[in-house]
Design a protein around this nucleic acid. Sequence first.
DNA 1: CCAATAATTGACAAAGGTCCCAAAAAACGC
DNA 2: GCGTTTTTTGGGACCTTTGTCAATTATTGG
Lengths: 218, 218
Amino acid sequence: MSGEGPFTHQARNQRKSVRTRARLMDAAVEVFARDGFEAASVNEIARRADVVNGTFYVHFKDKDAIAAEVAFKVAYDIARQIDGAMTHIDNAAERFSCATRQFIEIACGQPQWGWVLIRSAGYAPEVHRQVESYLRTDLALGVRQGLFDLEIDAFTMDTILSMILAALAARLRGDTGPEAASKVSEMVLRVLGVPAVAAKAFAWSPIELQGFKIQTTL
Amino acid sequence: MSGEGPFTHQARNQRKSVRTRARLMDAAVEVFARDGFEAASVNEIARRADVVNGTFYVHFKDKDAIAAEVAFKVAYDIARQIDGAMTHIDNAAERFSCATRQFIEIACGQPQWGWVLIRSAGYAPEVHRQVESYLRTDLALGVRQGLFDLEIDAFTMDTILSMILAALAARLRGDTGPEAASKVSEMVLRVLGVPAVAAKAFAWSPIELQGFKIQTTL
DNA sequence: CCAATAATTGACAAAGGTCCCAAAAAACGC
DNA sequence: GCGTTTTTTGGGACCTTTGTCAATTATTGG
């Protein structure tokens, strides 16, 4: 086994079944991140969780089942962290910029989670829904505040999300430094109709967070 | 076998080896488009090309080899079609909008090629390079013409490409109608710094093509 | 038309995948 | 500590995949 992952940590005081399940999920994250969903094998996941192959099937029906659960939990957890740290920001452009930058930062701090998000975006609708949920609210707010002049429909959301994920991928690949998060924020704000100068200001201003620091594990 | 694909058609008068190779490539397009690169199997490709498994290995070293070749040929061919039909347009914003809209239209006319482009974008650098080659020229031109005010670096290119591919994917999934191409053009032009009104005008103006119509097969 | 060359075949080994299950071991409540 | 319940084990049945190769069949130039 390779260290203790976030799910395992969260399950530390629960009954054995729960702990094993959590170990399988941490292992699945590693394998999905490295090999992609299609190429990942149940055997490899079990091996990394230090259980024999048969144990896997006690806990999950098949590969699809664990993938859906892992993707959902990862997306949910990240979204929750971001939301919690932003309750004090009112301006929609600032909220968007802050959320996007934090999202990329958090996902980079846990690279395997980042890759799982990217690689599962195509297959797992629940990931899309999770990430979009925090986006949609702020975008709609911006329209109401008169900051954004673009119609926020499903296609717009989809395009914006793909920009953010592209930035995350570039960052995880190491193609770019931490500035990618601000760059992509600025680009999206321009798409939304924020004037260039204001977009730059929002995207590059320092982030103020509620509380000390962002929590990067469950 | 399921009909005659573009590669097979192009190879119709060549020697047998070339024709079989082309059939394998058409089959590979179908399988990669349907299953994605990771899940695609050499067996399935051979079956669809109406040859036995062993024949595949006469023509290609392995799955990677055929994937690289297919992705490159598809990207190259589409880029060539677009370039050829745009020699008479001078304005960079118009060129970009026209190229993007045609790109999506062509890729949708041959859905399997479209999916191959999307699914291989992550794995095959040659696809990125091909598609970016026609983009980069026009974006740089726009900066020189004073139309765009955004620095065109690798990250910018990457983000813009991901927007275009997201629109293509939405279109191929049937999530959106033909207007997606104009919508995404408009969004990218805004990113590039084109004023909202002008961006809308460029993105939705009718396309004038050199010659009669776009060719949609090799 | 025939010999030489080119191309395809089909069977197979080796590797690895999925999923199941009877038996063993561990954990739990009393 | 002890019997019951929960959980894990290990191996096996069966399938798919990859990649190779000697044998066979098709094509083609002379």
